[in-house]
Simulated scan of single mutants.
Amino acid sequence: MIVHPLTSREVKLARRPDETPRPEHFEIVTSPMPRPSAQEILVRNRWFRISISARLMMSAGAEDIKGIPFPPIKPGDTLADGAIGEVVSAPSESGLQPGDFVSHHCGWREYAAVPLNQCVLLPSGPVNPVAYLGHGWTAYAALTRGVQVRQGDTVFVSSGAGAIGSMAGQIARRLGAARVIGSTTSHTKAEWMKTALGYDAVIVIGSTPIAELLADAAPEGIDVYVDIVGGEHLQAAVEVARQGARFVLLGALTAELAAKGATKVAPVELDSFQLIIKGMTLRGYSADNDPDAFNEWLQHLDEWQQDNGIHLTSSKFTGIESAPQALHEACLGRLKGLVYVEL
């Protein structure tokens, strides 16, 4: 018989960070074991995701940001993010059994009482947390629903070593892209992106204007741009775009990781005349609008892993105490791919 503890630990925001969140902005709190209601299940979390979007959502004024599918975080709140947990108990009519694995959005804690309608039962067998918590499906949806990659396209992915970018470059290739270009802030990451992820070229952001770097990497222009950064990246992509280029905008790290604190404003100056004469399309996109893409992505992932493999990039931390440090390092751009904590 498995005996579960009487308490559970969780991570709360102690005070708002002025700049990059550090471990001292959080506290690990021990609370009584959650008591699920009749329509909830008790889950022991095994893995949970760390997302840099938490930095924006814990900033002052986050409650005024409309349309973002993340709740604002106030001092005293427990953080939350995607998680995979093992069922401890469940209502008899739920069809769930102790030991089943489910995905949900109550991470940053050891145990959680999760509403039944917010849980997804995972297939039996070994669980790869990177496949389910990672942003491969976000990249896949963006490249098949947000825009469509065509045979022979040149694709540019900003923040190409990150959670979305590390997958977008690989997926674009498998969807027919002839040339894939990424960006990063580190020469070490750039070499790794070419050797491990298969990027044809990687531009390293520094003192040289991004438009100049991108023009050198894509002398014939780009057809598709996966924008995760915004700002100068987006401006440069417009300059280098070919006729009929398609842009899918997924994030704005220039705002989320601003040096003086996260902000909901990501201004950029674009030449609208270029948009017109090149017949370009720019689309803001969220994969949450196409949930059917998730299972489709898993099917393709299984196929692609059998055919030369696809690199599921991740940075793993162990223990709930490590979560604040994981967020700190993620916000500083030190990590690769999905950042997650194993409990």
Rank of each mutant, 00 (worst) to 15 (best):
A258H: 14
G67V: 11
E256V: 15
Q97D: 04
L338V: 00
P72F: 09
V268I: 08
M1K: 04
H233F: 00
E212N: 15
Y199R: 00
S158D: 02
L282H: 00
V3Q: 13
M58H: 05
M57Q: 11
G230R: 09
L13E: 05
V29S: 12
G231D: 02
A141Q: 07
V114H: 10
G165T: 02
Y340H: 14
G85N: 03
G337A: 07
G251V: 00
N308G: 11
L79W: 03
L175R: 03
I41V: 15
G99D: 03
P34M: 12
A161Q: 09
Q243I: 05
G221P: 06
S322W: 12
L13Q: 02
I310C: 10
L214I: 12
P5K: 06
I276W: 14
M58C: 11
G146T: 01
A262W: 11
P126C: 09
G99A: 03
T318E: 09
G125C: 07
A161G: 11
A293D: 07
E329R: 13
A178Q: 09
V341M: 06
A245K: 01
S59N: 11
T30S: 13
L343V: 07
L270M: 07
E342S: 14
G76L: 08
L214Q: 00
G67Y: 09
A323M: 05
V11M: 08
T138L: 09
A142Y: 01
I164C: 07
F156G: 04
S158P: 10
H311R: 13
T318L: 09
G319S: 01
I276N: 13
V204S: 08
S59R: 13
V240F: 01
F317T: 05
G284K: 11
T185N: 12
L335Y: 00
L282F: 10
